[in-house]
Structure formats: C-alpha cells, structure tokens
C-alpha cells in the first residue's frame, strides 16, 4: 500500500532525473539540521536564506558553554510554562497513585456502605460514591493501579518490538527492510481497536491480555517512526564523517544514530501512553478488562452509565479524570516536541 518511497539518496549530487522535490527535501533536511543553531537573530527570517542562519559571532570565548548549560536553560524555560508544570505534576501524581494508592486515600476500594449509596461529590467523598456506597475516588486510585500498569506493559511491548524492528529495518535496507515494512503495512490495514479485540478474543479477558493487545496494536507506529528517524540520521554528514573516521556500524549506531533518533520516538512514547490509556479504557469499557470487583478506569465509567439520570458523577467524574491524564500526556509530548525543533 502506501509505503514510503523516499529513495535512499546516497548523498551524491542528485542524479539528473531526481525530482526537484527530493532536492527540496534535502534542503529542508539541511535546514532542519541547522535548526538547533538558531541562536542567531535572523533564524527563520526567510525561507531559503540558507546562509543566513548564523552570523560569525555567537558567544564570547569566555562565556561558559556545553551540555549542562544547555540543559539548565531548557529546564528553566520549561519551568516557567505553567501548563507544562501542571501536566507533569498531575502525571507524577497518577503514576505514584498507581503504585501506592494508599498514599492518597485511607479507604478500602471494595468496602461497601449501604447508607452512603450514590452520595454526590463532597469533601468526604471527592468523587462521590457508587451504587454500593463505595468511595469512587478510592476506586479511581486503585483503578490507576491496573490501568497505568496495563499502559506501561503495552508501551513496553510497543517500544521494544517497534524500536528493534525500526532500527533493523532502517539500517539493513533492501529486502529485509521491504519485508518488515510490508508487515507493518498489513498491521496498518487492521484498525488498532479491532486487532486488539482479536487478540483479546484469543487470549481471554483481563488486564494483562488487554495490555498485550494494545501494545501490539500501537507497535507499528514505533517501528515506522524509528525507521524513518534512522533513515534520516544515517545519511547525515556527521554519520558519514564518523564512518570516514573509521567507526564501525555498531559504534555509529550506538553513539550517533540512536541518540539522535530518540527525540521523536520519545515524543511518540509519551503521546502513545495516552493513546494506550484510551484504548485500555475503551476495552475495559466494552467489558473485556479485569473481573469485578476490581475495576479499571474504563470499567468504572461503564458501571456508572446506568445511573446517568440520577447520579451522573458516577460516570462523568472518572471520565474527566481519564481525559485529564491523556490531555496532560498530550501536552507534555507537544511541549517536548516543540523544544526539539
């Protein structure tokens, strides 16, 4: 189907037949490569003003420089972005609560209290109570345990397999690359949710099967992104310079290709954590998650929908919570992406 047909330009002068588009792409790549150097005032002033990226004076010789200064500057700019800080704090809270829910609640997620059925949200019950009088806030936190773990399993599967396939494919090229990309294409033809459903059908229900199903479902994106990055980085002049300097491929891979490819993959990983959470929630909403009385986020929302008329919070508050988690992850990913550019 729609495989990338970017010809593997060998970095030679473009053969006469090579399209102008390829030339433009190369120029864009060069510009992108030079982008980190935009400490000069005229950055982005004019497209095509290739030479105008840098003036011949940047920082005085006496000024400190180097990695740590750069990192500190990055941290400083990120620290003043309130949205970003808020998102990071919220995600940190959710992750901590997933591993130690007891820190944020003293109640038992399964203890029922018939007297307090369907209480609306209050200071006592932050998210209210459900039809059995169980505290929903507590159930949400214990639900994090299942959902976040499932998301991490899914992400682990996707990253490990996707990264391996992408690197192999991008480095080897030729037949192997074509074969791998065909496989990924086929995966693309089956929508993630359906593929997950098929896997869940075969593996049975529960948190772990759902996690595996989602992990396999979102894996192709990692394989493709990694491959594209490896293909991009491996033709950059500094990789060639390293090769010309006598470095072996494994060395080039470890020191140049992987570190320089990891940016977009990391952005995708953060983004896809959110996606995985949504799929996991959807699958448990459809009834394929953990068995009761355990409840993932999706199950909680699903359980509350019978009481929408009388007690809408039972369903809607957990839903908002999930949305907040995913939104935070999206925001973090987007902020990192903008920094990367």
């Amino acid at each position: 189907m729609t495989t990338s047909v970017v010809p593997e330009t060998t970095g030679t002068e473009a053969p006469a037949a090579a399209s102008a588009a390829a030339a433009a792409a190369a120029a864009a790549a060069a510009a992108a490569a030079a982008a980190p150097a935009t400490a000069a005032p005229v950055a982005g002033a004019k497209p095509g003003a290739g030479g105008a990226l840098l003036s011949e004076r940047l920082i005085a010789d006496s000024e400190p420089g180097g990695r740590w200064v750069g990192l500190r500057a990055t941290a400083r700019t990120l620290a003043v972005k309130p949205g970003f800080v808020l998102a990071v704090l919220f995600i940190a809270f959710v992750v901590v609560s997933a591993f130690a829910p007891g820190l944020f609640t003293s109640r038992d997620p399964y203890s029922t209290a018939p007297a307090e059925r369907m209480d609306s949200p209050s200071l006592n019950h932050l998210f209210g109570t459900d039809e059995l009088g169980r505290d929903l806030w507590t159930r949400m936190l214990y639900g994090s345990q299942l959902t976040i773990k499932a998301a991490l399993i899914a992400l682990g599967i996707a990253i490990v397999i996707g990264l391996a396939l992408g690197v192999l494919s991008g480095l080897s090229g030729g037949f192997f690359d074509a074969l791998l990309m065909r496989i990924v294409d086929v995966q693309l033809a089956i929508p993630v949710l359906l593929l997950s459903l098929a896997i869940v059908t075969a593996l049975g229900f529960g948190t772990v099967p759902v996690a595996i199903a989602v992990g396999v479902g979102i894996m192709p994106a990692f394989a493709r992104t990694t491959r594209a990055e490896v293909l991009r980085v491996k033709t950059l002049p500094f990789v060639e310079a390293s090769r010309a300097g006598g470095a072996s491929w494994p060395r080039v891979l470890l020191t140049h290709v992987l570190p320089n490819s990891c940016g977009p993959v990391a952005v995708l990983a953060v983004l896809d954590t959110g996606v995985a959470i949504l799929y996991i929630a959807s699958l448990s909403f459809l009834g394929f998650g953990a068995a009761p009385p355990q409840a993932e986020w999706g199950t909680l929302i699903s359980a509350g929908r019978n009481y929408l008329v009388t007690a809408p919070w039972v369903s809607l508050l957990p839903g908002l919570f999930v949305a907040a988690v995913v939104l935070s992850l999206n925001h973090i990913s987007k902020t990192i992406q903008e920094r990367e550019r």
Partner: peptide, 16 residues
C-alpha cells in the same frame, strides 16, 4: 580523512 561541505550537519549536535 574527509571534511564535509556543510559544517552545520557534519558535527553530531549531541557531541561536545
């Protein structure tokens, strides 16, 4: 040894 045309791309941005 080789020296490239584009000094902006011939050094790994992550290497000191």
């Amino acid at each position: 040894q080789l020296v490239h045309q584009n000094p902006f791309a011939s050094l790994d941005p992550r290497f000191s």
